[in-house]
């Protein structure tokens, strides 16, 4: 066997191993085994989207056990100024961090260019997530959601991170999942909806009543 043959078969083996790990993880996620046991407080990331989504998520933050879920890390889009104000109003003590990533899609952006900007945002997000090392990621809408969750999932495939993703669908979605929801139903460990009949639209969705 020549050197190049060895190298190519090694690569094929590597890719195959990665694919098997990915499929295994998706099966784990879809079958709903999402328990997480930690000896220290749970490092929690909140993906802040925009406008109404931010308000909805921060209302949820107010209700969680702040001692259990800390430190809290907020990931927001680099051109999002108003959310930072809202976060400061929500967080009473200073046990939180902000991280900024490029927006994956701006309003009125074309489909093709949003694919490119999402890819860019995803690459940018890798070191951010790797450094934050979250145990749980909460997200509820557009903006920073997709790159953060994709990166977290890939790092989990590579055994570099062990985290769970919780996606909370907006109360605005009464009959169908949002685009983010449609994508994340394959990556999110827990899918939450806010209307009872939505559990028929998405087979994995859980309904616990109206949250906001």
């Amino acid at each position: 066997m020549t050197g190049s043959e060895f190298f190519s078969s090694f690569c094929v083996l590597l890719i195959l191993t990665f694919l098997i790990r990915m499929i295994y993880l998706i099966i784990v996620i879809i079958t709903g085994n999402c328990t997480l046991i930690r000896s220290k407080p749970i490092r929690t990331v909140f993906c802040i989207g925009s406008g109404g989504h931010t308000t909805e998520l921060l209302r949820f933050v107010k209700n969680i056990n702040m001692k259990k879920y800390q430190p809290r890390m907020y990931i927001l889009a680099d051109n999002d100024a108003s959310s930072e104000v809202k976060i400061r109003e929500t967080e009473i003590d200073n046990n939180y961090y902000l991280a900024r990533i490029p927006r994956s899609r701006n309003v009125k952006q074309s489909y093709l260019s949003s694919v490119v900007s999402t890819l860019y945002a995803t690459l940018y997000t890798f070191p951010v997530i790797y450094k934050l090392k979250p145990d749980i990621i909460f997200c509820n809408g557009p903006g920073t959601c997709i790159p953060v969750c994709v990166v977290a999932f890939l790092l989990r495939c590579l055994f570099l991170l062990d985290c769970r993703i919780v996606f909370i669908e907006s109360i605005c979605r009464v009959h169908t999942l949002s685009l983010t929801g449609k994508i994340l139903q394959f990556f999110a460990d827990i899918m939450i909806v806010q209307w009872p009949n939505m559990t028929e639209t998405c087979f994995r969705a859980k309904y616990f009543g109206r949250l906001t």
Partner: peptide
């Protein structure tokens, strides 16, 4: 309009994610 109540969800999350 009934009040929003995240308690059920928070209880569920607390049962799945535990700190020992």
């Amino acid at each position: 309009f009934p009040k929003a109540d995240p308690t059920l969800l928070i209880n569920y999350l607390d049962s799945v994610f535990t700190v020992k």
